[in-house]
Simulated assay, not measured.
Amino acid sequence: MDAVLVINADLGPLHRVTVAHAIRMICRRVAEIHEAEPDRMLGVFPMPKVVRLVRYVVTRWRYTHGPAWSKAGVLHRDGRRCGYCAGPAATVDHILPRSRGGRNTWTNTVAACAACNQAKGDRTPAEAGMVLRVTPQTPSWSSLARR
């Protein structure tokens, strides 16, 4: 077990943390163990699977803005599949290259394999003669939370 789910006081999911972070939260009395691994202990504590915050944390910001852009988020959104050839992707390609003013945004980036990223280079897909299989969109918080 490498991640522990943190839920708000109203039982709504917030994010995941490491086991060590979860134990620190329990020691500081910020959170309580909501669900634990059966018959597994970490010192005097049961091995947590889910911890619940003691006080409610307002998460209004989650619903006013979408999630921040990240390379890992783009790869997760696209299922680690290349946006050009559908092969396994390990990198992110900018549809409008950064050298031409393209930014790190959800709608300007797509997961890409090394071969397609190299073939496209510093050009747009149209200039490179490549067809983009997907239309990049900004993901929702819930779709990124399902990891």
Results as ranks from 00 to 15, higher is better:
S143I: 10
G73P: 04
W106F: 03
G83P: 00
G83I: 03
G121L: 07
A72P: 03
Y63Q: 14
H76D: 09
K49M: 12
S143W: 01
C113V: 08
V30A: 08
I7V: 15
W141L: 08
P46V: 10
H15V: 09
A36E: 07
L53N: 01
G66R: 02
L14A: 11
I23N: 00
C116I: 07
R146W: 01
I7K: 06
T64F: 09
T64G: 06
E127R: 06
R62C: 07
S70V: 11
G43C: 10
V51L: 02
P13R: 14
H15W: 09
L5F: 01
N117P: 01
A3E: 13
R60I: 12
P13H: 15
R123S: 11
M41L: 11
Y63C: 04
H94G: 04
N108I: 01
H94A: 06
E35W: 08
V50E: 09
R147H: 14
W141S: 02
T59C: 12
R98T: 14
K49Y: 06
V92N: 03
V110I: 15
Q137C: 12
V6Q: 01
D2H: 13
A72L: 10
L53Y: 03
V19W: 01
D2L: 13
P136K: 05
A86R: 12
R62V: 03
V50G: 07
T107Q: 12
L144W: 04
A20E: 15
D2I: 15
W69K: 09
E127N: 01
A119Q: 15
L75V: 10
V134E: 04
D122H: 14
V4A: 03
I7S: 03
S99E: 02
G43P: 05
A126F: 01
A68G: 07
R103T: 13
Q118D: 12
V131Y: 11
T105R: 04
P67S: 07
L5G: 07
P97N: 12
T59Y: 03
A20V: 10
R55M: 14
A72Q: 15
C113K: 05
